[in-house]
């Protein structure tokens, strides 16, 4: 392999993603204005915000899918603007992304989907690649026969799991999850939260999770960041969020649904 050696794994607690004064906008509209956020190595960070406030935009900006106007983004301690193409590719190998609707390649089977990044980046024999795909499929809780299925034959929950398996294909250090539990029933969502928690522990992942789901936030996330007024208005644990004075955070974490959850 001619790829440069990855920097040593960061110690837990170091910021693995560091966003500073980020400004993102489309045409006249400014979506994010002076946003700063740290994601610490080894944590699960839940990212909340109202619909259309730019949660996905931040994720997509970090991933380089959306252009930013100003500000800086560092991943693994490396400024993404200053990274060369090779360095960027090395970084991209170390993160995995699970899109909201899966974004599985519809013409490939689940196993082939998982093998796409492997084929691209690794030198493995087909047998080992099949075994590895089967392993990932089981790790995300899918049945082995899912391997040969096309994405169109999968249920919503299975698509999410298959997409997670593809995100984990290269054993990434950071996993971005865009609304992982949206569209799942509460039981399925709880199982998915457990799965993320378990995988995070076994694989030592850092998870950046965009979500709406209060249950996910409470059960899976170490810290929560809330987006309102184009900025991160609060970062902290669930308890700290409840104490936060911001009006939107108050209505979100102290709304009826949240209170019902707390009592339950």
């Amino acid at each position: 392999m001619d790829a440069p050696a990855p920097a040593p794994r960061l110690a837990p607690g170091d910021p693995i993603i560091r966003v500073r004064d980020l400004v993102v906008g489309f045409d006249e509209r400014v979506i994010l204005d002076g946003l700063s956020l740290d994601v610490k190595a080894g944590e699960i960070l839940g990212f909340v915000g109202g619909s259309g406030t730019g949660k996905s935009v931040l994720t997509r900006t970090i991933l380089g899918l959306v252009q930013k106007r100003s500000g800086s983004i560092e991943v693994f301690g490396q400024d993404l603007d200053k990274a060369s193409d090779a360095e960027r590719r090395a970084i991209e190998k170390r993160w995995g992304v699970m899109f909201q609707h899966g974004a599985l390649f519809s013409s490939l089977t689940v196993a082939q989907n998982i093998q796409v990044p492997m084929r691209e980046y690794l030198d493995l024999s087909p047998t080992l690649m099949d075994e590895l795909a089967a392993l990932k499929i089981e790790m995300v809780g899918l049945k082995p026969d899912a391997a040969s299925k096309a994405p169109s034959e999968l249920s919503g929950g299975m698509i999410k799991r298959a997409a997670l398996a593809r995100a984990l294909a290269l054993d990434p250090e950071i996993v971005f999850l865009d609304e992982p539990t949206s569209g799942l029933d509460p039981i399925g969502a709880a199982e998915f939260d457990d799965l993320i928690r378990t995988l995070q522990r076994t694989l030592g992942l850092t998870v950046f999770m965009v979500t709406h789901d209060l249950d996910s936030l409470a059960s899976a996330c170490d810290r929560i960041a809330a987006l309102a007024d184009k900025k991160v208005v609060a970062v902290g644990t669930m308890d700290e969020m409840v104490e936060c004075p911001n009006a939107w955070v108050q209505s979100y974490f102290k709304g009826e649904r949240a209170l019902a959850r707390m009592k339950g």
């Binding site: 099949d130 075994e131 392993l135 790790m139």
Partner: peptide, 19 residues
């Protein structure tokens, strides 16, 4: 401990047989 968890996680699932 880190390696142990990973090996256990993989082992629990047994050996996969490719179809």
């Amino acid at each position: 401990p880190l390696h142990r968890t990973l090996i256990d996680a993989v082992k629990r699932r047994g050996l996969q047989v490719a179809p």
